[in-house]
């Protein structure tokens, strides 16, 4: 699996995800947002950060960067695309993922560990994860409140497009476990074709034993294994 990490002006997690994917044995290249050549990568990664200073709306300007045309085509061909945090925001703005990420309901930038439960194992990103346990993954965002209009939300749920939900350390869903007010405690979703993934928590920040948490590496490792269709 060859990964390509897009670097926008203002991306700041590109190096983290680069290191994390390399660490677990992936082949990784960086892609500049002004280029249009995806260098034959299998999976495009849209990293976290503050692309274009989060001006106008998070991700709104980045989606019109030249490389996003190629990403759109790559996704339409069935290629994998994975957005983390600001990357998730960019993919919703680009229409590659459903919904939108709104200002956290407490109006704060939240930087802390959260616990995630796997909501579906029917995607490449989650196929080998354990639905019985929780994964401790940090978040760091001000606009992470997942929102979709009622009908769209129902469609996302009916199609099993929710990847992860926020839970507490014991795996229980509830008001206190949801850090930002996301509808249905949603922390990550995929598209209907199940080849585009987005999540607000940062697995790349929990992927090195020296930092005391490798739950994120467990998730990233899934991308290395191709599943049989």
């Amino acid at each position: 699996m060859k990964f390509g990490i897009i670097v926008f002006p203002g991306s700041n997690c590109d190096e983290d995800i680069y290191q994390a994917l390399q660490h677990i044995g992936g082949q990784v290249v960086k892609l500049w947002h002004k280029d249009t050549d995806l260098q034959n990568v299998d999976c495009v990664v849209v990293p976290g950060g503050f692309s274009y200073g989060d001006y106008l709306r998070s991700g709104a300007i980045a989606r019109f960067s030249p490389i996003m045309q190629s990403v759109q085509a790559h996704a339409e061909r069935g290629g994998y695309v994975y957005g983390i945090c600001n990357g998730f925001q960019i993919l919703t703005e680009a229409g590659l993922l459903p919904g939108a990420l709104l200002r956290n309901n407490n109006q704060k930038f939240i930087c802390k560990n959260t616990y995630l439960k796997v909501a579906t194992t029917d995607t490449l990103l989650t196929h080998g994860l354990d639905r019985k346990r929780t994964y401790k993954i940090p978040i760091a965002h001000a606009e992470g409140r997942f929102y979709a209009p009622k009908e769209l939300l129902a469609e996302i749920e009916a199609n099993n497009q929710v990847l992860f939900r926020y839970v507490d350390a014991h795996g229980k869903q509830g008001a206190d476990a949801n850090p930002n007010g996301s509808l249905n405690d949603i922390a990550g979703v995929c598209n209907a074709k199940r080849n585009v993934f987005g999540m607000m928590p940062h697995p790349e920040r929990a992927a090195d034993a020296r930092l005391g948490n490798t739950d994120g590496a467990e998730i990233l490792k899934m991308l290395l294994q191709k599943i049989e269709a």
Partner: peptide
């Protein structure tokens, strides 16, 4: 397309 996001 850019200035407003109709979802929100």
């Amino acid at each position: 397309k850019l200035l407003a996001n109709p979802v929100m």
